[in-house]
Design a protein around this nucleic acid. Structure first.
Lengths: 202, 202
DNA sequence: CAGTTTCTCAATCAAATGATTGATTGGTAT
DNA sequence: ATACCAATCAATCATTTGATTGAGAAACTG
C-alpha cells in the first residue's frame, strides 16, 4: 500500500470528497456531455481510485444525482440575494437582468451542465425531482416581479405574469449559450420594452 | 448463412437503410438520450446485424451526424410552407404560432432529439454545422415577420426584430418541453401582446 | 493503547461497447 | 452462365465500463 503523495495530508472528509467528485463530474460534463461521463475519468480528475469513488458515490446514477444536487446548492447560494423589493417592477427586472449577465460572465459553461440535466430530467424522475423545482423557482421569481410591476404601473396592465416569466427565463437561458451570448444585451433590452408600460416609461 | 426472415424480401437500398437507421436512432435518443445510444440497439431495432449497420454508417460519430441530417431533412420539409406574405406582421405571427402548435402536437418528442443535438453541437463542430443553421433559419423567419410587422404598423415601432425573434423562438422551444407544454397558448398570447402595437390592435 | 470504523487501494470481474474479419448471399450487367 | 459489386451475417476482437473484493491504512473513540 503506497503512501499518499502528500505524506502529511489528512484525508478529505466524506462531504468534501463528494463535493470534489461533483465538481470533477461537472467539468467533464462540460467537456464531453453526459454521454461521455465516465466514472474512471472522474476518479482520475479528483485524484482517487475508482473503488474510492464507488465508496463515496455507489452508482453512476447516484453520481448524476449528486451533480444535480450540487447545482441546487449553487442555485440556493445565488437565490439568497434578494431583489430590491422597494423598487418598481421594471427596475427590479433591470436588476435581475444585470445579475443574470454577471452569472453568465462568471459561469459561462454552467448552461451546458444544466441543459444536459434538463434533458435527462425527462427520462429520469430522480433528476426531474431536483431540476424542475429549480426551474420553477427561477420562473416564479420573475412572475413575482411582473406582478409587482403590473401593480405599481411600471409594467403593462394586460401582462400575464406567468407567461411573461416563461418567456423571460427561456430567452435568458438561450442567451447563455455560446452562440447566442452576444445577443444578451439586445434581448434584455427588448424584454424591457416588451413588458414595460409605455405611458410610465422610467 | 441462414436465409433472411422474410424469404422473398428484397434488400433495402442503401438510402432506405440509412433512413431506417436514422429513425431508429432517433427513437432510441428519445428513450435513452445520446448517453444511452448504442449501435447494437439501433441495429436490433432496424432488424439488421451490427456489421451491416457499420457497413452503412461506419462510425458512431457518423451515426449522430446522420441523425442531425435527418432532422435537417424534416426541417426542410416543413420550411416549404410559406407564410402568408400578404398578411400584416401580427397576423403572420399568429399563423406561425398556430403552425408551431401543430408541429408540437404532431411531434411531441422531437424536442428531445433536438435538444440533445444542440447540447452536442457545442462540443462537436460537425454537428454544430448542421444544427446551428437550422436554428438561425428558424429565428430568421421570425425576424422577417417582425420587420414586416414594424413596417405595416401592426407591431411596435421600437421593436428589435432580431432580439424579438430570439425571444420568440426560445419561448416556443421551452413550451415544446413536456412540463411546459400546457403553457404554450398563454405564452403565444403574451408574445402577441408584447410585440403588437396597442393603437393598431387588430 | 487497542479496538472499531472509515476510507483507500490494486486487482479483478462480467458484461458491454464500437468496430472488424472473412465468408456468404443478393442483385445486376454482360 | 459468369463475374463483379453491394450488402449481410456470425464470430470475433480489443478495449472500456460500472462495479466488486479483500487487504491495509488512516482516523476516531474510550
Amino acid at each position: 500500500m503506497s503512501p499518499p503523495n502528500t505524506s502529511s495530508a489528512r484525508r478529505e472528509s466524506g462531504d468534501d470528497r463528494r463535493i470534489a467528485i461533483a465538481q470533477a463530474a461537472r467539468a467533464i460534463i462540460i467537456e464531453k456531455g453526459l454521454e461521455g461521463l465516465r466514472t474512471r475519468d472522474i476518479a482520475e480528475r479528483v485524484g482517487i481510485n475508482i473503488a474510492t469513488l464507488h465508496y463515496h458515490v455507489p452508482t453512476k446514477e447516484a453520481l448524476v444525482a449528486l451533480v444535480a444536487a450540487s447545482l441546487r446548492e449553487d442555485f440556493k447560494a445565488s437565490a439568497q440575494r434578494h431583489p430590491r423589493a422597494d423598487l418598481p417592477g421594471l427596475q427590479q427586472l433591470r436588476v435581475e437582468f444585470a445579475e443574470f449577465a454577471e452569472i453568465v460572465a462568471e459561469s459561462p459553461e454552467l448552461i451546458a451542465v444544466l441543459s444536459e440535466l434538463i434533458d435527462r430530467a425527462r427520462r429520469d424522475p430522480s433528476i426531474a425531482e431536483i431540476i424542475l423545482p429549480l426551474q420553477s423557482f427561477w420562473t416564479g421569481q420573475y412572475a413575482e416581479i411582473f406582478r409587482i410591476g403590473v401593480s405599481d404601473g411600471s409594467l403593462r396592465p394586460d401582462l400575464d405574469p406567468e407567461a411573461a416569466a416563461v418567456i423571460t427565463t427561456a430567452a435568458l437561458s438561450d442567451c447563455w449559450r455560446p452562440h447566442r451570448r452576444a445577443q444578451l444585451p439586445a434581448v434584455t433590452a427588448e424584454l424591457e420594452c416588451a413588458f414595460s408600460f409605455p405611458s410610465s416609461q422610467g
